[in-house]
Design a protein around this nucleic acid. Structure first.
Lengths: 200, 200
DNA sequence: GGGACTCTAGAGCGTTCACTCTAGAGCACT
DNA sequence: AGTGCTCTAGAGTGAACGCTCTAGAGTCCC
């Protein structure tokens, strides 16, 4: 049975635990146990300790979840409004399937460290930037004006993050449904604005 | 120099620390030091320990911040769209004034405990419910259809929470500006829908 | 097959954690 | 003045924390 190298198993285990419990509630002991790695190996691969491993986990899961943007807003999308609704519906499905655990991989950590640890804060900021850039490019590809795309991308991410917060604490997907409707409406509005701007 | 009783000082200190650092990074020692209370007093007033005190802090700061909804969407509001923009602008002002520390008092804690502590999770859920109910009532008062109001209230809260997350990790108010614009547009859309529904 | 290097392995370190415990101060009522 | 109750006060406890340290296993090149 082949398995990924220790370093990658450590990062994956950390990312998993961060998603559910955040940074401070995740202990190094828990991480190495889940990764099936000895304690010493962790400090061999990450001399910077928990913080360095945490930064790697943020970056890694940020990249992995970023793929979902290309999945839902890919080249084959014809109706951007429907794709937006589908994006939020997919999030709701994943959330319920995981008993309200699998939402944003970095939001909890990002809030925990926002005022207390600049290295981790910047790692999270880079992930958000990457998502926004990626989503904005897809918006433009599907008919949104260049000038509106970054703002729209940000609004979609914000609605998703806000919905995850409400859904996880309330154990309900209602917020994600409302967020999906609002996001779709905003996309529709900006598509119409772009189409209409040709007339003025 | 009169000062509030010990119990209230403990709750206030806890709420302050939760807002900046969340639940797990806030130690009991830190709380009693900031409150200027002896260690034993804390366990006299809150026999349930850190968890009981945490729940009280969530409820207390939830009520305090809920007042802001009535402040920004009060009886004297004439233009709901402008009031919505003002709400987000106010949040941005507070955020920058506090060096990106004073955002949502319970979001960090809510995410930390969402999958690990049901008592605290439910305390946070009650706060969010209260905010949404309060905001929905104000929306109806200012011309939003009863059927649309809870969803709109939820969207406003989600945009605010998502924006706080982005703004705090990116040290920029851009997300709050985009969120304010999107929220105002959504309010405008639903006001028009309600106005238009009289014709059909 | 010997040496160098990477990685595994886990016992042990000092610190901090949430919490318990006992003692006494302050105050109200009699 | 004495009794009973609320609240203050902080030293002390066992457990868990992140991390360091030394030792040995595995692997590749010469």
């Amino acid at each position: 049975m082949e398995q990924p190298p220790t370093r990658e198993r450590l990062v994956a285990a950390t990312a998993d635990l961060f998603r559910v419990s955040g940074y401070n509630a995740t202990s190094v002991k828990e991480i190495v146990e889940r990764a099936g790695a000895p304690f010493g190996s962790m400090y061999h691969h990450f001399p910077g300790g928990k913080e360095e491993l945490g930064a790697a986990a943020i970056t890694s899961s940020g990249l992995a979840y970023g793929e979902l943007i290309d999945l839902f807003f890919g080249d084959d999308v014809e109706d951007l409004v429907a794709a937006t609704s589908g994006f939020f519906a997919g999030a709701a499905w994943t959330l319920t399937e995981s008993a309200y655990a699998d939402a944003c991989p970095i939001a909890t950590v990002a809030l925990e460290v926002a005022s207390t640890n600049d290295d981790l804060r910047l790692a999270a900021a880079a992930v958000f930037d990457g998502w926004i850039e990626r989503a904005a490019a897809r918006m433009v590809q599907h008919g949104i004006a260049e000038r509106d795309a970054p703002g729209l991308a940000r609004v979609i991410i914000m609605l998703l993050e806000g919905a995850f917060l409400l859904c996880r604490t309330q154990r309900s997907t209602r917020a994600l449904e409302d967020a999906g409707r609002a996001a779709a409406a905003e996309v529709e509005r900006l598509l119409a604005a772009e189409g209409g701007s040709h007339l003025s």
